[in-house]
Amino acid sequence: MSQASFILSAFDLNLWCSVLETKFTVDDLAALQAIIDADIADDPDFAGLYSIDPDELNAIDQRFDVGFDPARLKLPEIEIWLERERKGRSIRDVPYLVHTNFELPLMLEGRKKLARFTDVHPKTEKAFDRWAEKGVLHKEVFVESIPESLIPYLIDPNHREVRDVYYSLKGEEWRIPAMNLLWKAEGGWNEHFERLEGMLFGYEDWQNDWWIAHRNEQSGGIGGVPFCCKVDSEGLKWMELAGFKALPPLAEIQIHIYDPDEDTVAAALLAEDECAVAFARFKLSLEMQRKLLDGNTQGPWQINREQIPEINRHLKRQVDVLFRQSAP
């Protein structure tokens, strides 16, 4: 029977961070789903984040022998969360403390200089507001209408405004207009913006270096949807001669969205084509991405030879070669 790892967290609503965690192994997903009454149809892989009540926690402890006892912390306001461990893409795999869900204590310690929330959850804002009201943090709010050109791409077309809430340490207020200006810059997000954002938040240079290198390796670069296409031996040779700075001028290319969690699917797709020897992974400018996705957000997309030069003009970085294999 296959096993899966899960994490239980005790989340302090006053400090707005996890203060106790434990990992445990589940040998029967159906049993866990039955305990927390999870909707299998909506979340068959248990990828969601679940709030656990005391009775559910007790049942989990008895069934899976977890030994998780947040009551011993004697904290007045905590929530218990359950999530499935995501191997290879979890922030717990990063070799430094990622600020996510630790923003408030890090700011109170002076280790984090700035926090930014878009359409922030009321409980999150309440936790930070306590310290803004005490004069420890500085708060600014920006509300802007979503441009009409982006309305067709919204999940909820009735959501027409974006509310950004910033908190900074006292004396670091300059970071707020700097970050707001960064997010208004045109041309699409890229690794230079990512580095500037990290610096404004308070990450160290080596941490920004690691993060950008990791994102390049995992998804082909910062910002936007990663795409991929199969190439034959001639196409691969052409890309090598071009320094991996362009896609080859093949008669026709079928482009797919690349999902780093579905490497087995990508490898199977490659095996279906006896002429293919590798996948080329690439990212496009926001302008080209919208043009490509127009009317079809799932793919695949058929690109002919005449369209490839335009695609190449909109590449955001080098083309990565994945699953390279010998020519038949």
Rank of each mutant, 00 (worst) to 15 (best):
A266F: 15
F227R: 01
G235F: 11
P328G: 01
K112S: 05
F24L: 02
R313N: 08
E56T: 10
R72M: 08
L114Q: 00
K316D: 01
P44Q: 09
W16E: 00
A251M: 15
D164Y: 06
A327K: 02
N304V: 14
I155W: 07
A178W: 06
G135N: 10
E262A: 14
R290T: 13
D55N: 03
Y203K: 02
R63N: 05
S2N: 14
A34S: 00
L15H: 02
T25N: 07
M239F: 15
E194D: 07
D37T: 11
I7G: 00
L322S: 03
L49E: 00
R86A: 13
Q302K: 11
N208V: 11
F64R: 07
L269I: 14
L13M: 03
R305A: 12
K237W: 10
A271K: 15
V165A: 03
D45L: 12
D42G: 04
I176K: 04
G224N: 06
S18M: 01
D263S: 15
R92H: 15
G223C: 06
A71W: 10
E77M: 13
A327W: 04
L150C: 10
A127I: 08
F142P: 04
A276L: 12
Q318D: 06
L241T: 14
N180A: 09
V321P: 03
S285H: 13
M199F: 03
L13V: 01
D205A: 12
D69F: 14
F282K: 07
A268D: 13
E240M: 13
Q254N: 15
N58M: 08
Q307N: 07
G299A: 10
F102Y: 09
I80E: 05
A280K: 14
R92S: 08
G221P: 05
A276S: 15
E197I: 01
I36M: 02
N208G: 02
T100Q: 09
A280G: 13
D55P: 03
L32M: 04
I308G: 03
E272I: 14
V26P: 00
K283I: 15
D205W: 13
V19Q: 01
S90E: 07
A115M: 06
W81Y: 15
K283M: 14
P54Y: 08
L108C: 05
F6Q: 04
S149Q: 11
H314K: 09
R163K: 11
N208F: 03
T22Q: 05
A71K: 03
G88E: 09
I52S: 03
F102M: 05
A213N: 02
P157D: 08
A59E: 05
E140F: 08
V165P: 04
K23D: 04
L269C: 12
G135T: 12
Q318Y: 10
S9P: 04
Q62W: 02
R215P: 01
E21N: 09
R290Q: 14
R116D: 00
P328K: 02
W211S: 00
I222C: 03
D205L: 14
E161N: 00
Y166F: 09
L114M: 05
